[in-house]
C-alpha cells in the first residue's frame, strides 16, 4: 500500500505533525512525502529519516503565496502518475484546504479529525469531546483522503534516506488568483504549549483580563509551564489566539494540565483530554471539567490560585 503524507513546511523544517503522520504511513506501507513550497528540498533528509522513501519536492514559492489551489492542482497531477492508496494531511490551515479541494477534484472520500487508521478503508474519529469513538469504513475511488488530529501518532526516527523526485507541474495562472500580500507574526510568549510538561490554562472564570497575570505567575511558580486558554477568553481579547487549546486551537498532552475557571465544553475537552493528569479549579461543582479531572477543587480560582502560588514558592525555598 502506498501512503502519502502531505508535509507542512516551516523555515525550521517539517512540522512535528508531519513527522507524526510519517510514522503511521511507514507502519501502514510504503511511506512517501509531498513537500511543496520553500524549504521542500532541505526538508527531505528529515522526512526520509522519519520514514519517507520518496519525497516529491518543489521549492517553488507559488505553493506558499497562493493558498491551496496550486498545491491541489500539483497533487492531483502527481496522483495521476503515481497512484497512492491513501493521503494523510495534518490538521493545519494550509493542508486542510488542499484536502478539501482534492476531495471535490477526485470525488474521493475525505475523513477529518482522525485519531487512528487501520488500513486504506478504515479509520477512527472521536466525537462528543472525545467520549465516543466512531469507526468509519471508507469507500469510493482511491486515494482516500484523511486529515489526522495532532498528536494522534508518535513521530519516530527510522533512519532512512529519501529519494528526492522534483515536482515539475506547470501551475496555470488561473490557480494563482488568490494571493498572500502580507504576513504578520504574533508570537506567543513563554514555553510552547505543545511541548511543555505542564500547561496552566484559564477560562472565563478568571473574571477579568488582568488576572491573566495570575495565570502567568502560576506558570512561573510551577516552573517552565505553558499558558493555555479557552476560546471564550481568546475571543474576548484577553489573550492571543496562539494560546487557545481545543478543537479550533492546539491539542496538548502534557504530564499535568491545570484548568482554572474553565467549564469543560466538549470543544475544549477534545484539545486536552489526552493529558496524563488533569487538575481543575472551578467554583461550580457541576462543571463538566470535573468529569475528566484527576484532582478537582471546588472553589474560587482567585483565592485558590494565589494560595497555590504561595505554596509552590514556599516549597522551592
Amino acid at each position: 500500500m502506498k501512503v502519502w503524507v502531505f508535509a507542512e513546511l516551516t523555515p525550521g523544517g517539517p512540522t512535528p505533525a508531519t513527522l507524526e503522520l510519517l510514522a503511521k504511513a511507514h507502519e501502514l506501507g510504503d511511506a512517501e512525502a509531498l513537500a511543496l513550497g520553500p524549504g521542500a528540498t532541505s526538508a527531505a533528509p528529515t522526512l526520509g529519516a522519519h520514514g519517507a522513501r520518496t519525497v516529491y519536492a518543489s521549492d517553488d514559492p507559488v505553493y506558499a503565496d497562493h493558498l491551496a489551489q496550486p498545491a491541489a492542482h500539483a497533487v492531483k497531477t502527481l496522483i495521476e502518475t503515481h497512484g497512492p492508496d491513501l493521503i494523510l494531511f495534518p490538521a493545519t490551515y494550509g493542508a486542510r484546504d488542499v484536502a478539501g479541494r482534492l476531495q471535490a477534484k477526485l470525488g474521493s472520500t475525505l475523513m477529518a479529525n482522525v485519531i487512528e487508521i487501520t488500513g486504506a478503508d478504515a479509520a477512527r474519529t472521536q466525537i462528543a469531546g472525545g467520549t465516543l469513538f466512531v469507526d468509519v469504513v471508507l469507500e469510493g475511488p482511491s486515494p482516500r483522503l484523511i486529515i489526522v488530529s495532532p498528536k494522534a501518532f508518535v513521530a519516530q526516527e527510522v533512519g532512512g534516506t529519501a529519494e528526492i523526485v522534483p515536482v515539475e507541474v506547470e501551475i496555470p495562472e488561473y490557480y494563482t488568483r488568490v494571493r498572500r500580500i502580507e504576513q504578520h507574526d504574533e508570537p506567543a510568549s513563554g514555553p510552547k504549549l505543545e511541548e511543555a510538561r505542564v500547561v496552566v490554562s484559564g477560562g472565563r472564570g478568571l473574571q477579568d483580563p488582568s488576572n491573566i497575570t495570575l495565570l502567568q505567575q502560576l506558570a512561573d511558580a510551577v516552573g517552565g509551564a505553558a499558558v493555555g486558554a479557552t476560546r471564550a477568553i481568546v475571543d474576548a481579547g484577553w489573550i492571543p489566539y496562539s494560546h487557545q487549546v481545543g478543537q479550533t486551537g492546539k491539542t496538548v498532552k502534557p504530564d499535568v494540565y491545570m484548568a482554572v475557571g474553565i467549564s469543560g465544553a466538549l470543544q475544549h475537552l477534545v484539545g486536552m483530554k489526552g493529558s496524563k493528569f488533569v487538575i481543575a479549579i472551578n467554583k461550580d461543582p457541576e462543571a463538566p471539567i470535573f468529569r475528566v479531572a484527576d484532582l478537582g477543587v471546588v472553589g474560587d480560582a482567585l483565592v485558590v490560585v494565589p494560595a497555590l502560588i504561595q505554596e509552590l514558592v514556599k516549597r522551592r525555598g
Partner: peptide, 24 residues
Amino acid sequence: AATQRVSHVTPAPAKSGGVVIEAG
C-alpha cells in the same frame, strides 16, 4: 452516494479514580 459508512460507535475508556475536594 455515500463514500463512508459508520461501522461502530464505542464509548472511550472513562476516567477513573478522580477525586473532587472542596477548596479549603
